[in-house]
Design a protein around this nucleic acid. Structure first.
Length: 778
RNA sequence: GCGAGAGUGGCGGAAUUGGCAGACGCGCUGGAUUUAGGAUCCAGUGAGGCGACUCGUGGGGGUUCAAGUCCCCCCUCUCGCACCA
């Protein structure tokens, strides 16, 4: 008997066979299930926190297969991006090569977890075959009037003379050299996401997912704004705002239309031109920023309190900070005495009647700035001609290939690295044929990832971006799984692009994802795993020591998948013990179980002796719980595993109790025993696939366990025929009595009252649960 | 500041419609087995009390026969965004 599951001997064998299993025939779209996991950035190493995403997705894909679905589970690489360029600069390796190496390594990591995909559909966003179509998308947007050029600020390091990403700015300083970062205006490309703001907001209702709320923060309606009256004020010459929260008195006054009082007008450094009209009403008594402005400024600015804190009386003390809570209005003319939240609406109504105000909706959504002054991205396919202006590269000339031999070290003139390649820059104008220059910026990597899920259906076609027919049959994605960090922008951009393609008539759906699931982060020592904190847990040593199934089971068992969880090295052993407990169930009984498939073993539940019914019932209850818990929509693998542990414990007890009968091959007992083990394996297999497949094969089944259907539930046996009735007095438990399952209320009441002879005022009877007796005094 | 989420044993976490709080696992304790250790198997394990009992789901109120769950107020923590008013 082998005491431990020999995972090292069998894992590889199964990885090879599963590749076939996961190859999807997309021509058959009936009963399709598109299970999409966010394609990762190939940063080099996956840790167990990343693993959660892929393990959840893999387990789900396998459950769906066993439910009979035609599962499409593809994978690819979001392969353009800043880290490749940083690594290149640091280690003097070409970004393309660095990326390629990382992809190779990460693919191996997927494999070791037993996470399987349809690799025949692999896509890599940095390959010309792919980014050709990212460029094509840009041109479509441009031709539809949704791409435009405008000056916008970038972070600029005056010492490195280069553009910095937000991430590279730490505390206002360049992370590399520590110089103070400046803002510099550059002409850049934008996509008009704002044009889709209303639809992006409205259609959120089509997405049944918890994360909707997160995105509501991104596209948000701003409330009432008093625009009209302030527009009349002439804004004086603006003083340059190089200091924070300082102001300049214009000498002008505005009139507060609600009270008809004069208000001094200031220029303030902290008011953003880009937001709203660029003009705001300062309320120093009730806005902390305005309050600080008044405090920091040498100017004499009156602070008028207009909200009296709830419950306060008499003279109001001088404020030490802005009062931002509820209260009633004071110093507000006709609105005095009204609760501030109500007054807000009242003031609006009054002004609206006079035609002085109107409600406006402000989406907290900017147009999408897609230009990046970087090398490692898809070149923007535009040509600048002196005579014809900016013109798109003709579609037949795509892709605009990213030249390999470019010096992408910081050059110090602020231009994109591509500008150094004369060969790249110099071109002919496609309109007039004259000498012209290519745009030297590349696209934001979010553009690459905003359409990749369409490409998976036909990853290799070179005459178009995607096959509309296949895409229409397979999308929207049935289940999208990914990290919370991408739940906002990536989702927004993908939705924008899909709506655009819908408007262009290229696809017939306008939301890309049917359901989204964002899994929680895995923490370690109270912080999320990161290289800089040095708290990452690598999967390899764990898989080496305990096997892939242990790591999978632990990862799924750690907690509800949507919540954050703390990694605990020692608790991994619990998963390891469980795996081996299941294995021993087999190995202890190998004589019986080896090739048991070839024999007919069956049971008739109706004919089972009473002492065997509890196990049969446990099998039914577990089956019900696992299938409901996982496929019922909540992906609660943690409770599914716990109930499989319970079942395992019960099979152990059964095995021990009927040891001799099993040895003697008693038909009924062996039948139930084998059934229990079969169901245990079927339910466990998506989560611990190596173990389950191996035992399944040894039991003599010729086909993969993932080609089996999930066990069905004999629902008659879900409820026990007896249960523990709780008897409460005044809501406190006073007795517990075993009763028959179908006992009616009257009978229950009688049983309870006989048990405790109490003069009852009132009795609450809940069949199946409890009897609560209410008495006057205890 | 805005937005989102979360507070249950020593720890991770369970608890249909409000109906036995703490399933399952980790850790700990004890027993079996073993020359011993490890591994394995079995049992116990919220706190207090000898006890019948009492107290317990961040804190305080409330609704109810009954509250982790519903309502009001407060506290703490985590994440995301932001000179966005």
């Amino acid at each position: 008997m082998e005491d431990y599951f020999p995972f090292k001997d069998v894992e590889e064998k199964w990885h090879k066979r599963w590749e076939e299993l996961f190859r999807c025939d997309v021509a058959k779209s009936e009963n399709k299930f598109y299970c999409l996991m966010m394609f990762p950035y190939p940063s080099g190493n996956l840790h167990v926190g990343h693993g959660r995403n892929y393990i959840i997705g893999d387990a789900l894909a396998r459950f769906k297969m066993m439910e009979g679905a035609n599962v499409l589970a593809p994978m690819g690489w979001d392969a353009f991006g800043l880290p490749a360029e940083n690594a290149a600069i640091k280690n003097n390796i070409h970004p393309a090569e660095w990326t390629k190496n990382n992809i190779k390594r990460m693919k191996e990591q997927f494999d070791r977890w037993g996470v399987t995909y349809d690799w025949s559909r692999e896509i890599t966003s940095c390959e010309p075959e792919y980014y050709k179509w990212t460029q094509w998308l840009f041109i479509r947007l441009y031709k539809a009037g949704l791409a435009y050029k405008q000056a916008a600020s970038v972070n600029w390091c005056p010492s490195c003379k280069t553009v910095l990403a937000n991430e590279q700015v730490v505390g206002g300083e360049c992370e590399r050299c520590g110089s103070k970062v400046e803002q510099k205006k550059l002409e850049q490309w934008f996509f008009k996401t704002r044009k889709y703001a209303e639809r992006l907001l409205q259609d959120l209702d089509k997405l049944p997912m918890a994360e909707v709320l997160i995105e509501r923060g991104g596209v948000k309606e701003e409330g009432v704004r008093f625009i009209e009256e302030v527009k009349q004020i002439q804004v004086a010459e603006r003083e340059k705002a190089q200091f924070t929260k300082k102001g300049f008195f214009t000498g002008c006054y505005a009139v507060n239309p609600a009270t008809n009082k004069k208000i001094p007008v200031f220029l303030a450094s902290y008011v953003l031109m880009e937001y709203g009209t660029g003009v705001v009403m300062g309320v120093p008594a009730h806005d902390q920023r305005d309050f600080e402005f008044v405090k920091e400024s040498p100017l004499e600015i009156p602070v008028i309190q207009v909200i009296r804190p709830s419950g306060s009386h008499g003279e109001l003390p001088e404020l030490e900070a802005a009062y931002t809570n509820e209260g009633e209005m004071i110093n507000s003319g006709p609105f005095d005495g009204i609760k501030n939240s109500i007054a807000m609406e009242k003031i609006y109504e009054t002004l609206a009647e006079k035609g002085m105000a109107k409600k406006a909706v402000h989406y907290r959504l900017k147009d999408w700035l897609i230009s990046r002054q970087r090398y490692w991205g898809a070149p923007i396919p535009m040509i600048h001609c002196k005579r014809c202006g900016t013109v798109p590269v003709p579609e037949e000339d795509l892709p605009v290939v990213l030249p390999e031999d470019v010096d992408f070290m910081p050059r110090g003139d602020g231009k994109s690295p591509l500008a150094t390649s004369e060969e790249f820059v110099k071109t002919k104008c496609p309109v007039c044929g004259d000498d012209a220059e290519r745009d030297t910026d590349t696209m934001d990597t979010f553009v690459d990832s905003s359409w990749y899920f369409l490409r998976y259906l036909s990853p290799n076609i070179d005459e178009k971006a995607f096959d509309s027919d296949l895409v229409n049959r397979w999308l929207p994605v049935d289940q999208y799984i990914g990290g919370i960090e991408h739940a906002i922008l990536h989702l927004l951009y993908s939705r924008f692009i899909v709506k655009f393609l819908y408007d262009e008539g290229l696809i017939d759906f306008d939301e890309p994802f049917e359901r989204l699931f964002t899994q929680g982060m895995i923490y370690r020592d109270g912080a999320k795993m990161s290289k800089s904190k040095g708290n990452v847990v690598s999967p390899e040593p764990l898989i080496e020591k305990y096997g892939a199934d242990t790591v999978r089971i632990y990862t799924l068992f750690i907690g509800p998948p949507e919540k954050d969880a703390e990694w605990n090295d020692r608790a991994v052993e619990g998963a390891y013990r469980f795996i081996n407990r299941v294995w021993r169930l087999y190995s202890k009984n190998a004589q019986l179980l080896d090739n048991v498939a070839d024999r007919s073993v069956s049971i008739d539940p109706e004919a089972l002796p009473a002492e065997m019914i509890p196990l049969y019932r446990k099998v039914q209850q577990t089956t019900h719980k696992v299938i409901e818990g996982v496929l019922g929509g909540s992906f609660h693998f943690n409770t599914a595993i716990s109930s499989l542990m319970e079942l395992t414990n019960e099979i152990y007890a059964f095995n021990e109790r009927f040891k001799e009968e099993i040895a003697k091959q008693d038909e009924a007992i062996v039948g139930l025993f084998v059934l229990s083990i079969k169901n245990l394996l079927l339910l466990l297999s998506p989560m611990a696939p190596h173990l389950s497949e191996e035992i399944w094969e040894r039991m003599g089944f010729k086909e993969s366990i993932f080609k089996q259907t999930l066990p069905t539930v004999d629902s008659k046996y879900i409820l026990a025929e007896k249960y523990t009735l709780v008897v409460q007095i005044n809501g406190k438990i006073r007795a517990k009595i075993e009763v028959e399952k179908d006992t009616d209320s009257d009978k229950l009441k009688k049983i309870a009252l006989e048990n405790k002879r109490i003069a009852a005022l009132k009795t609450i009877t809940i069949p199946g649960k409890l009897v609560n007796i209410v008495v006057k005094e205890r």
